[in-house]
């Protein structure tokens, strides 16, 4: 998952980014003003936007209404200093999905962020299950059957993203866009390395294979039977 944090207070933005990165395994970009944030957010590569309300150049509410007018469905979590009912109502009506009042709790920020990402992908449960594979997004653990599988952070991110996309085929480009922040170099072959690692750790020794490569289109996390019946999204 990739998150954009828009906050003119660099220290706060960095703390939020670190929490999201360490606590949820998200790739995080930081924008220090509304205009830059809006430019980045408009790329559509984010799974969540964390937005401070008082921003230079483009204010939070302005950001929200423009962003929604452009038709972006990405969930937006607003950080605000005001918790009066009116201002909260105005925020939600402007297109925010949730809000946190400063000074907020990082744990709560993490939980709300994960919930928003889930909902943004049409999911409900924080624990994904495909056949006997279980991915717990709360404590970032993966089990197959009774065995806990230790994954490298990037492997976990790829798996979690595939799980969120619910058995659909996910292209390599989409994975690249949603798993790396813009400071990271994007080597497309790295994805293949993570997929093969995942396949080795999850599917080896199991008759039911869960990680599938759809030639020329991408990857999917599902059972073979779901492949035949399941819905197919191109992206």
């Amino acid at each position: 998952m990739r998150v954009l944090v828009v906050d003119d207070e660099r220290r706060l933005a960095e703390n939020v980014a670190r929490a999201l990165h360490e606590g949820a395994g998200y790739a995080v970009d930081i924008a220090l003003d509304g205009a830059e944030g809006f430019h980045l957010a408009s790329s559509g590569e984010y799974d969540l936007v964390v937005l401070d309300l008082m921003l230079p150049k483009l204010s939070g509410p302005e950001f929200l209404s423009r962003y929604r007018k452009q038709g972006h469905a990405t969930p937006v979590l607003v950080l605000t200093a005001r918790d009066e009912k009116e201002s909260v109502v105005r925020l939600l009506n402007a297109g925010a999905d949730d809000y946190l009042v400063k000074p907020f709790d990082l744990g709560e920020l993490l939980a709300r962020s994960k919930a928003l990402v889930r909902r943004g992908k049409g999911q409900r449960s924080p624990v994904f299950a495909v056949a006997d594979l279980e991915i717990n997004t709360v404590d970032l653990t993966v089990r197959r059957g009774k065995r806990e599988i230790a994954l490298a952070p990037m492997e976990y991110r790829v798996l979690e993203y595939l799980a969120h996309r619910a058995r659909a085929v996910v292209s390599k480009t989409e994975l690249l866009e949603h798993l790396y922040d813009y400071n990271w170099e994007k080597f497309s072959n790295v994805i293949e390395v993570y997929i093969s690692g995942l396949r080795r750790k999850i599917d080896d020794g199991h008759s039911v294979k869960l990680i599938h490569t759809v030639r020329g289109r991408g990857y999917a996390l599902r059972t073979e039977s779901e492949h035949r019946e399941g819905p197919e999204a191109s992206r």
Binding site: E9, R11, L12, N15, V16, R18, A19, E22, G23, L53, M54, L79, A81, R82, V101, K102, P103, F104, D105, L106, G107
Partner: peptide, 22 residues
């Protein structure tokens, strides 16, 4: 603005502490 500045400053301190605790 005062609320924003004060709460933001407190939020920075709090989030730094919680981040250390994470």
């Amino acid at each position: 603005n005062a609320a924003h500045e004060l709460k933001t400053s407190v939020a920075i301190v709090k989030s730094t502490l919680q981040s250390l605790q994470q």
